[in-house]
Design a protein around this nucleic acid. Structure first.
Lengths: 202, 202
DNA sequence: CCACATAGATAATCGGTGCTATATTTCTGG
DNA sequence: CCAGAAATATAGCACCGATTATCTATGTGG
């Protein structure tokens, strides 16, 4: 096990952040003890405090990492930009399902962090950047799609991106509480409607 | 002060619930102590525990009350069913602004409770009912509007209600982190688009 | 190999918090 | 008015959890 110090450090840091993400998502920041996070990462609070200084520092680091890491995860998971409905369906799947690790409560962490962002300026700014980044990627995807299909977008791409993201988020919230209340088909229809030229004439 | 016991009790209960709603919204359930809630209501933890038995009991009661109280607040706040854009604008204002008490973090409480609902079956069911109720009211409003204007809705009213609610929620989330990222006009346009027959000129 | 530096583990402190047992105030029925 | 009941207050306990010194292990440069 001749790991370099740097590797060791990075591994613990990553492990702690992963554990924190998981626990914070499942139980909420304040309901999770530093011991619980450390134990889940097979480390101790000593390591945690050496890395992050405080429990809040752990949260800040998590938000930072989170912003950089998952920013383009949604858009990257999209298969190919051929079929718009396919893209929407993939995005929807990605949001409501755990995406990466099965059972990982993605949406829960998203909302947990959103709440902290709404209550803490520093976190709020980080998240705002993150959302802006996601919208940017989405907007790029839309313009690329429109270009590839020789279609004109009904509104500026950034606005359409905001539209799509808004709808997907809100639908996911409702879906989580009552899966029957929102079907994938309805989501696809609605986002399609928000983004494309109306097919019918007045 | 010859208040009857019943009045006293009811007032205390209401005061505690109000204080809990406010504090939970601002800081989060686990970050708020029972003492803090009691003090904010000018009572003591003795009264709190006599009424709700436990801190979690207070949360349950809050969710219950919340469901019944604010269910039709959104739809009731709508001025008159004449102008659809006006209705949407009012709903949007209601969601992003504090609605009732100025400065009351409505959306924060909404999301705080949503998180607890996603983590706790009992709360989740309550909230699911609440959301269903809101959608129901919204759907009724839409059918009434369509009827009054002799228009046909593009899809079944319940689906349109889900659409509108989805978009409004998701837009509110983004708006809270970055007010500039979502404008009222964009919201109105989008919801309009989701609900009405496509038309090229106003 | 060996001193040093760095990463991580241990264990104790200390304030805070949920909750309970008991006292006190406030109403009600006679 | 006055018991008894109901609503709320008071005080304190038992525990937990964030933080911090301090100690041990692990890699590193000479």
């Amino acid at each position: 096990m001749a790991r370099t110090q740097e590797q060791r450090k990075a591994a613990t840091r990553a492990g702690l952040l992963d554990a924190a993400a998981d626990q914070f998502a499942r139980k909420g920041f304040h309901a999770v003890s530093t011991d619980a996070v450390a134990e889940a990462a097979n480390r101790t609070t000593g390591a945690l405090y050496a890395h992050f200084g405080s429990k809040e520092g752990l949260l800040f680091a998590l938000v930072d990492d989170y912003r950089d890491a998952t920013a383009d995860a949604v858009t990257a998971s999209v298969p190919d930009p051929g079929d718009l409905d396919g893209i929407i369906a993939a995005a929807w799947d990605h949001i409501i399902a755990a995406s990466h690790a099965p059972g990982s409560p993605w949406l829960l962490l998203e909302m947990e962090l959103w709440l902290h962002g709404a209550r803490n300026d520093r976190i709020g700014r980080q998240l705002a950047e993150r959302y802006a980044h996601v919208r940017g990627d989405l907007a790029d995807g839309l313009t690329a799609w429109a270009h590839a299909h020789d279609t004109k977008l009904v509104a500026p791409a950034p606005e359409l991106a905001t539209r799509a993201l808004s709808f997907l988020l809100g639908a996911a919230l409702q879906h989580r509480l009552d899966a029957a209340s929102v079907t994938a088909g309805e989501v696809i229809d609605a986002v399609h409607l928000l983004v494309t030229e109306p097919r019918r004439h007045p």
